[in-house]
Design a binder for these strands. Structure first.
Lengths: 395, 395
DNA sequence: TTCGTTTCCGAAAACGTTTTCGATAGTTTA
DNA sequence: TAAACTATCGAAAACGTTTTCGGAAACGAA
């Protein structure tokens, strides 16, 4: 029989069931349970990344000393430091980020939640974020909500579970409750909103000149002689969409034009919706002679659709849009836009977040507005002399 | 004086220097060193995320039991499991990802290195990667090399330090040595290459039909009657650029046309380079009548430039390009392309990598080719009848 | 009953760092 | 020439999990 692992005796051994598939034994003398484990013939030591302990073992010092050398603490002799660094280099030592983060309680990672990385605007923002983050020694983890409220909630949870040091959020167009961000904010997670912000949460924010941009675009049209200007808006829940509509209204009011609610069409930004809006407007007794789209992509779609229908731009219908991309300047006719600077928005948001992370307690949320720029192109230009220079309004 | 912390005696105490700013004492009786620490009046317990230990304390069980309940182990009573889950939910418990990863030795995170997130192709790839990764329960960490070899190397290091479970790489156009990936591969880090792959490293790869696509585009031009077809290539180090040139050569050879090396212009993909190439070709004694660009963006640039110079497309010069974007179909004239499917490439690469991660030992690297598609548009179409259907060549 | 069995749980090690607190030898000061 | 000090190092705790191993009670069958 098998002897007891403690007393080595055989007679007191009784079997005591199976545990995890292995026979279990009990020594009545020693009052000891044990299982018989085959001596594990190939106890192969897993080849692993070299650790601080490896270095310590090589040099016969303690792990603490190695840690001190690596972190260039003062409490270490210059010669041992050099020696440790040499060995570390020799063994291609890389600190284990997980262990470091766990110990320090910070990951030096920031989480980003955007609706869709494939939209050039957000890609630009991400690039800006990465630039600033990298320079400050932060990693970036990106999640896409795909314009879904639910996915956005999951993203927030996933990033918090990953213990990111802070969160950068641009909400999905669906999002109409903000409990998921409030919860994290209450827990002390630094959060900065950008572009699609929400007012009911007290976070730092980076926004565009939504109101002024819309105002400028609309006024540009008015000065060009457009009489009935329609708006292709976004979802009625979306803040930036509403702010832009407000800018549109303000411009009309300033110039004493009355506002026709029929000309404001709420869409979900999809191409189908754009065409539905167009159909709706063209069936109106009084058709619009100009269209302002909240989202530049819809402007492009409308241009294509109008061309298909042989409606001349800008003679019969003029078009202006919020936002800009290369394609807006290359399409025929080129699209008048209120140009935004996504890269700058990303840079700004990232540096605000890092500021918040570093100065966690003393940080007071504030809002920063990134300036945009009216770019007049052919899709709206009827009267070349009157309005060739952008109007500079500042409220 | 201060009494000894051990014997409580006062007479044997002598001062023994300062350490970290605080007076240090020595008890000769006890042979004990100690420092006087002010009792720390406000020992505020940091408000922290609830841990497994918190839950354990609440219920009077051990942390191991909580862990088992959370991981739905079998070795736990159903009632205690439910109770633990209830408390965990009540306290809004989130497992600490860092601790989990450190313990398990895997992060469930994959690292992605791309040249530039702002290029629609790579944004599409990233979206595809994210979809597959999310479904498989993996997080994604994205780095941009900005087309710099050095940055790419740093990216690899940063991701490995973060202990990602695997790496997805598309090389920068500058990269001409691959030691940084070889090193990680030797360490056992699973790596999958996509698009801009490298042959000298034995990794799984996802590539496009570079050869066939170029061949198809070139043959299309030949069938359309083009006689002198130029190529705007990429950097001469870049593999995919060379493969595409090979496809071009093969098509010419197949149709018995001789290859003029003057017509192959190596560029770094920049707009300036495109225009330089055009100038070069237009000053040739025998000008080209067709241009094939390795990168679709250069095709767009050339169309704009040719229009500016009042050179008719495709009558005087036709243009085809590798790669596709919305803009290629909207520009006037629309651009004939070999369409690629970035999203599919991302999906495929991600699932190959995850396959590699899961089956680390048994994984044999293989290469997958994502099919493309010839889309004939106006920029090359001279003879509408002869070549209206894409040619389907499969080698 | 009595022994083999199963079920459920706790103690403790482990993951790789950083950090706190002491300890020791050598160095300076009185 | 002690006493006070400095420079440098090690031991051990801590971060929050998971996992291994063993203990104890309850259960089943002979």
């Amino acid at each position: 029989m098998t002897p007891c692992t403690k007393c080595g005796n055989v007679e007191n051994i009784v079997r005591s069931g199976f545990i995890r598939g292995k026979q279990r034994l009990y020594c009545k003398g020693c009052n000891l349970y044990f299982t018989v484990t085959p001596p594990n013939p190939a106890a192969v030591k897993k080849s692993h990344q070299t650790t601080i302990v490896d270095i310590a073992r090589v040099l016969g010092v303690s792990p603490s000393t190695v840690s001190r050398a690596l972190n260039s603490s003062t409490e270490i002799n210059e010669n041992t430091r050099l020696e440790i660094l040499r060995v570390a280099n020799e063994l291609d030592y890389r600190p284990n980020f997980l262990a470091q983060s766990l110990n320090r309680g910070e990951t030096h990672t920031i989480g980003v939640i955007i609706p869709d990385i494939q939209r050039p605007f957000f890609a630009g923002v991400v690039a800006g974020i990465q630039k600033v983050a990298t320079e400050a020694g932060y990693r970036v983890m990106i999640c896409q909500s795909n314009e879904s409220h639910h996915t956005e909630t999951l993203n927030v949870q996933a990033l918090v579970t990953s213990r990111v040091d802070g969160l950068l959020i641009s909400h999905s167009k669906e999002t109409n409750s903000f409990e998921h961000v409030k919860l994290q904010l209450k827990k002390g997670v630094p959060i900065v909103h950008f572009d699609r912000v929400c007012v009911e949460v007290d976070t730092a924010k980076v926004i565009q000149e939504d109101f002024l941009g819309a105002f400028t675009l609309t006024e540009h049209m008015i000065l060009q002689g457009y009489k009935r200007i329609a708006v292709l808006a976004g979802p009625s829940d979306l803040l930036i969409s509403n702010t832009r509509i407000d800018g549109y209204r303000a411009a009309l009011e300033k110039h004493g034009m009355k506002i026709d609610e029929n000309l404001i069409y709420y869409s979900n930004f999809s191409k189908d919706d754009s065409i539905r809006a167009l159909d709706f407007w063209l069936n109106l007794p009084e058709k619009p002679d100009g269209i302002f789209t909240i989202h530049y992509a819809n402007g492009i779609e409308l241009i294509m659709e109008l061309k298909k229908r042989n409606i001349r731009i800008p003679e019969e219908i003029g078009i202006v849009a919020f936002g800009d991309e290369l394609i807006a300047s290359l399409i025929e006719p080129s699209l008048t836009v209120f140009h935004q600077f996504p890269f700058t928005i990303g840079e700004t948001a990232a540096s605000m977040l890092i500021e918040n992370i570093i100065n966690k307690d003393g940080f007071a949320p504030y809002t920063k507005v990134i300036k945009g720029e009216l770019i007049i192109r052919k899709s709206s230009l009827r009267n070349k002399s009157s309005d060739i220079t952008p109007i500079k309004h500042r409220f």
